[in-house]
Computed example of a mutant assay.
Amino acid sequence: MLATKRSVGERLKAVRKRAGLAQGAFAQALGCSRQSIVNWEGGSAAPPIAILAELRRKFDVDPEWVVMGEDDTPRSRYGPADWDAFDGLVADVEAVCRDVGLKHQPERHVALARDLYDAGLDPGATNRKHLRATLLKMSMRK
């Protein structure tokens, strides 16, 4: 059985969902309007080529996959992303934030997890311990 080919809009939506962003926040990150995101995801308009560069720069997404991919799993420009490790880091960040009493901010949690992932860290107790100490120090600053 052949897989259903996905549209550019469906792939953009997959990137947005993977980043944990609402349409408005995704639009802001890309420097466009929310209505543009709605139009692109809905297939009533195609994104300009400049958006591909922003997706690559801000979300590490392979522009070729956005234009010609056949599935809705975002491809990293540097190679396949380890989404299980990334999701584990997001879960670690959220757990540590709860532990230290920081406000639930999913977009910031994803951004922090992305920084940890880009630094080559894996989810786990050692990283959670270091992250907890760092966030505790940061939360005490006024």
Results as ranks from 00 to 15, higher is better:
residue 2 L to R: 08
residue 2 L to W: 01
residue 6 R to D: 00
residue 6 R to L: 11
residue 8 V to D: 01
residue 9 G to A: 13
residue 9 G to N: 10
residue 9 G to Y: 10
residue 10 E to W: 05
residue 15 V to I: 15
residue 17 K to D: 10
residue 18 R to V: 04
residue 19 A to F: 02
residue 20 G to L: 07
residue 21 L to C: 02
residue 22 A to R: 12
residue 25 A to V: 14
residue 27 A to Q: 10
residue 28 Q to V: 13
residue 33 S to F: 08
residue 34 R to H: 11
residue 35 Q to K: 12
residue 36 S to V: 09
residue 36 S to N: 15
residue 38 V to F: 09
residue 38 V to D: 01
residue 40 W to D: 06
residue 41 E to Q: 13
residue 42 G to A: 10
residue 43 G to H: 12
residue 44 S to I: 14
residue 48 P to N: 01
residue 48 P to F: 06
residue 49 I to W: 00
residue 50 A to Q: 11
residue 51 I to A: 11
residue 53 A to E: 14
residue 53 A to C: 12
residue 55 L to A: 09
residue 56 R to W: 08
residue 57 R to E: 11
residue 58 K to Q: 12
residue 58 K to I: 04
residue 58 K to Y: 06
residue 64 E to V: 15
residue 64 E to W: 05
residue 65 W to K: 00
residue 65 W to M: 01
residue 69 G to S: 11
residue 69 G to D: 05
residue 69 G to P: 08
residue 71 D to Q: 00
residue 72 D to L: 05
residue 72 D to W: 02
residue 76 S to L: 03
residue 76 S to V: 04
residue 77 R to G: 14
residue 80 P to V: 06
residue 81 A to V: 15
residue 81 A to S: 12
residue 87 D to R: 13
residue 88 G to V: 14
residue 88 G to C: 10
residue 88 G to E: 03
residue 91 A to W: 03
residue 95 A to F: 00
residue 96 V to T: 02
residue 98 R to G: 01
residue 99 D to N: 07
residue 102 L to Q: 08
residue 104 H to D: 12
residue 105 Q to G: 00
residue 108 R to H: 11
residue 108 R to C: 02
residue 109 H to W: 04
residue 111 A to C: 00
residue 117 Y to F: 14
residue 117 Y to L: 05
residue 122 D to T: 13
residue 122 D to N: 10
residue 125 A to D: 07
residue 128 R to V: 09
residue 129 K to L: 13
residue 132 R to T: 10
residue 136 L to W: 00
residue 138 M to Q: 09
